[in-house]
């Protein structure tokens, strides 16, 4: 049975207490994207500066949420700053692979057992270095919280795609 220590790793609590890149950027030139978690009402705002070469030159995070969504957003902001859009996309895929539960674990009896991470999806991106983000691996054992962890990432992806469309 997964315990709380699997979910609330010290590094997660650190990012929750001391969120990185918290704030806003001027729009324009920055792009602003909003994401909602319809289950819990959490809201994430991502402000994004992209240069002509497609590099994330700056990022800020606003909104409110639980420790998982806020720490994931904080770690994400630190991880993607200075990266190209292509690198961010790889990182996003790797992170979401880590957050995906293999379908077979949903098929099991009602008792909440071990969730089985989707190894095939993970393997496809194992060369991508997740760094601090690895700390969120335990979230997959608490399936309801997966959406908390991926909220910032989905919002970032939306922001990048809107930024590219408007370029």
């Amino acid at each position: 049975m997964p315990g709380l220590e699997d979910l609330y790793r010290e590094i997660i609590l650190d990012h929750y207490r001391n969120p990185r890149n918290r704030g806003e950027l001027e729009v324009p030139p920055a792009h602003r994207a909003e994401g909602f978690n319809p289950l819990c009402g959490d809201e994430i705002v991502v402000f994004l500066d992209l240069d002509d070469a497609g590099t994330v030159t700056d990022i800020r995070i606003g909104g409110t949420g639980c420790s998982i969504s806020q720490s994931s957003a904080s770690m994400m902001s630190a991880a993607v700053k200075g990266k190209t859009v292509a690198e961010v996309e790889d990182l996003t895929k790797a992170f979401k692979a880590m957050m995906s539960v293999h379908e077979s674990s949903l098929d099991a009896e009602g008792e909440s057992g071990e969730e089985i991470p989707d190894e095939a999806a993970l393997a496809a991106f194992e060369e991508v270095k997740l760094g601090d983000l690895e700390a969120l691996r335990g979230v997959v054992k608490f399936p309801v919280r997966i959406k908390c962890a991926t909220l910032a990432w989905n919002t970032l992806a939306q922001g990048i795609s809107e930024a590219q469309e408007s370029a």
Binding site: L4, Y8, C40, D42, T64, G65, C66, S67, I68, R145
Partner: peptide, 8 residues
Amino acid sequence: HPHDLSQV
């Protein structure tokens, strides 16, 4: 956050 409260 209520989500964290409820989890514990």
